[in-house]
Computed example of a mutant assay.
Amino acid sequence: MNLAERLGHAPDARLLIVNADDLGMCLSANTGILALLDAGAISSATVMTPCSWAPAAIGAAGGHDVGVHLTLTSEWDSYRWGPVTRDAPVSSLVDADGYFPRDCRTVEERANPDEVYRELRAQVLKAISLGLDPSHADNHVTPPPG
C-alpha cells in the first residue's frame, strides 16, 4: 500500500501537501498560519519549539496536522532563540550570546553530532509535552549571510 492509499486516496492519486513552517516563532506567525489552517488554505504546519510562542501555537492548533520544525539556527537580529535542552551540555550549538548560530554553515562547521541529536530529540519531546502529537518533522534552514 502506498502513501496515497494509506491516506484514503486512490493508488495513482497525486497529492499536494502545503506546509507552513515557523509556527510558534511569534504571535503574527501563529495568527496567520492558524488562520490558513482553519480556512483549509494549507495542509499542515510545523512548530518551532525553541521559540516563545510555541506553547500558544500548540494550544491553538488542535485538530490540525502539525509537526515539529527542527531548529538549530536563529537568524533574526533583534529576536533570537536557543536550545531547549536543559539537562546536558549543548555548547557546540550556541554562539557567544547563548543563542543558536545565525546560519547553517556555522552549525555544519561547529556542531557536535551527539549534541545535535540531543537537541533535536529535546525539541520533539517538548512539543509532545506541550500536547502535540507530531505528524511529521522538517528543518529550519537559514542561508549563509551575503
Rank of each mutant, 00 (worst) to 15 (best):
residue 1 M to W: 10
residue 2 N to R: 12
residue 5 E to M: 13
residue 6 R to N: 13
residue 7 L to P: 06
residue 7 L to K: 05
residue 7 L to H: 10
residue 9 H to K: 11
residue 10 A to S: 13
residue 10 A to G: 12
residue 11 P to V: 11
residue 11 P to Q: 12
residue 12 D to N: 09
residue 13 A to R: 06
residue 13 A to F: 05
residue 14 R to S: 07
residue 15 L to E: 07
residue 15 L to F: 05
residue 15 L to A: 04
residue 16 L to K: 00
residue 17 I to E: 01
residue 18 V to F: 10
residue 19 N to A: 02
residue 19 N to R: 01
residue 22 D to T: 09
residue 23 L to N: 03
residue 25 M to T: 14
residue 25 M to G: 01
residue 25 M to K: 11
residue 26 C to I: 11
residue 28 S to Q: 13
residue 30 N to Y: 08
residue 30 N to D: 11
residue 33 I to Q: 03
residue 34 L to Q: 09
residue 36 L to D: 15
residue 36 L to S: 14
residue 38 D to W: 11
residue 40 G to N: 08
residue 42 I to S: 07
residue 43 S to I: 12
residue 43 S to H: 09
residue 44 S to K: 03
residue 44 S to D: 00
residue 45 A to L: 01
residue 46 T to G: 07
residue 46 T to E: 15
residue 47 V to K: 03
residue 49 T to G: 02
residue 51 C to L: 08
residue 52 S to D: 09
residue 52 S to W: 09
residue 53 W to L: 08
residue 53 W to H: 15
residue 53 W to V: 04
residue 54 A to P: 03
residue 54 A to Q: 04
residue 55 P to L: 09
residue 55 P to T: 04
residue 57 A to S: 05
residue 57 A to Y: 03
residue 57 A to Q: 02
residue 58 I to M: 14
residue 59 G to R: 05
residue 63 G to M: 09
residue 67 G to V: 01
residue 68 V to S: 00
residue 69 H to A: 00
residue 71 T to D: 00
residue 72 L to I: 10
residue 75 E to S: 10
residue 76 W to Q: 03
residue 76 W to M: 12
residue 77 D to S: 07
residue 78 S to G: 14
residue 79 Y to Q: 14
residue 80 R to E: 02
residue 80 R to D: 05
residue 82 G to I: 06
residue 83 P to K: 00
residue 83 P to N: 07
residue 85 T to P: 03
residue 85 T to G: 09
residue 86 R to I: 12
residue 86 R to Q: 10
residue 86 R to E: 13
residue 87 D to F: 02
residue 89 P to A: 13
residue 89 P to W: 04
residue 90 V to G: 09
residue 91 S to A: 13
residue 91 S to F: 06
residue 91 S to H: 09
residue 94 V to M: 00
residue 94 V to C: 06
residue 95 D to V: 05
residue 95 D to F: 07
residue 96 A to N: 11
residue 98 G to R: 04
residue 98 G to Y: 02
residue 99 Y to N: 12
residue 99 Y to M: 14
residue 100 F to W: 09
residue 101 P to W: 14
residue 103 D to M: 02
residue 103 D to G: 02
residue 104 C to D: 13
residue 104 C to W: 11
residue 105 R to L: 14
residue 105 R to K: 12
residue 106 T to H: 05
residue 110 R to P: 01
residue 110 R to F: 10
residue 112 N to E: 13
residue 113 P to R: 08
residue 114 D to M: 14
residue 114 D to A: 14
residue 115 E to D: 06
residue 116 V to G: 07
residue 116 V to S: 10
residue 117 Y to W: 10
residue 117 Y to Q: 11
residue 118 R to D: 08
residue 121 R to M: 09
residue 121 R to Q: 10
residue 122 A to I: 04
residue 124 V to Q: 08
residue 125 L to I: 00
residue 125 L to N: 11
residue 126 K to H: 12
residue 128 I to D: 01
residue 129 S to V: 05
residue 135 S to C: 07
residue 136 H to L: 11
residue 136 H to S: 12
residue 136 H to D: 02
residue 138 D to L: 10
residue 138 D to Q: 04
residue 139 N to I: 15
residue 141 V to M: 14
residue 145 P to Y: 10
residue 146 G to C: 12
